[in-house]
């Protein structure tokens, strides 16, 4: 069914195309919906119960133990990364002081506003949905794994163990639940502390800033994901600088914007290829001219030799 919004978007796109106006649609995905969703994760509320890990594996159909197996806090001994069998993991960082509690940090795909993985994907298996999630279609994926290289947060994993139909594995914000059923993601639903909050990104940002304002002693004045990599759908609140939590300091422009501006600049108006063709032409022509010179010189030499001979 075509909604009114979709119709207007299509009509707008068509008009823009007819007018020969370049739109930003080409590679950056659809225009983002002003009500696009996100998740606010407040690390200071997280208790490290790892229920989100369980719910995520259950929802994604990945191998998982019984619920009580996730009570094991021994896993916090090492810093973990999401992999092909666990799309989200909790890491624990020691308390800043005796007055604080240890901080539990949830790591998963942040669903960038302008995702580098989507930009890198040559077959649009990864797409940025206008409503927020970066979705994945395994039927389109050719397994090139460019997305894994492109991601500034190094999130996507690959099912190397599957020889026949390996998938790129990352959080899809429970795309079936959120986009089709309008339900919150599984991790949000199970979180006992409501440390995870699901809603429109704009209102989540407002809630995050209101919390920082209300408890300046509790939070560092920074909402991670507001501007990181051009903004992300997931937003983090913490009691310390985020680089101490192994969250990378990335520029406020999306890496995709940089690469796309170079690529698109070169190919703008087909000017790059034309210039290349012209350059090649000039080289060839000058090379041809030289050949002519050489031929003439050779002819002169021949003539000289003949004259000497005589």
């Amino acid at each position: 069914m075509v909604t009114r919004r979709d119709f207007i978007k299509c009509a707008g796109g068509a008009v823009a195309a007819l007018g020969g106006v370049e739109t930003a649609l080409a590679s950056t995905g659809p225009h983002l919906d002003p009500d696009r969703v996100g998740v606010l994760c407040d690390f200071t509320l997280c208790i490290g119960c790892r229920r989100c890990e369980f719910a995520c594996a259950e929802e994604a159909g990945l191998p998982h133990g019984e619920l009580r197996a996730y009570d094991d806090t021994g896993v916090f001994a090492a810093t973990r990364r999401p992999d092909a069998e666990s799309l989200t993991v909790i890491n624990r960082y020691p308390a800043l002081s005796a007055d604080h509690k240890p901080l539990d940090v949830k790591v998963n795909c942040l669903h960038c506003e302008h995702p580098a993985c989507v930009s890198a994907c040559p077959v649009t298996a990864l797409q940025k949905n206008a409503l927020g999630p970066v979705t994945y279609d395994p039927w389109r994926c050719i397994g090139c794994r460019y997305c894994m290289v492109a991601c500034p947060f190094q999130i996507p994993a690959y099912e190397y163990h599957d020889a026949t139909a390996p998938r790129v594995m990352k959080c899809t914000l429970c795309q079936d639940r959120t986009l089709e059923q309008g339900r919150p993601p599984a991790c949000v639903e199970i979180c006992p502390q409501e440390a995870l909050l699901y809603g429109s990104r704009a209102s989540l940002l407002r809630v995050a800033k209101a919390r920082i304002e209300a408890h300046p002693d509790r939070y560092v004045d920074h909402v991670y994901g507001e501007t990181e990599a051009g903004g992300t759908s997931w937003l983090y609140l913490a009691d310390r600088d985020f680089h101490q939590l192994d969250l990378p300091e990335v520029a406020s422009t999306s890496p995709a914007e940089v690469t796309e501006s170079i690529q698109h600049g070169i190919f703008k108006g087909f000017s790059g290829p034309l210039m290349l063709a012209a350059l090649v032409g000039v080289i060839l022509k000058s090379a041809g001219a030289c050949e002519k010179c050489e031929a003439e010189a050779a002819a002169r030499n021949e003539a000289g030799k003949e004259a000497d001979h005589e």
Partner: peptide, 24 residues
């Protein structure tokens, strides 16, 4: 909401006192 309200009430103290976050 209710679930978050309950858990935050309990866990804010229980974590401080015992560091125990096990559900059971």
């Amino acid at each position: 909401a209710l679930k978050g309200a309950y858990h935050r009430q309990c866990m804010n103290c229980h974590l401080d006192w015992s560091g125990d976050n096990s559900c059971d």
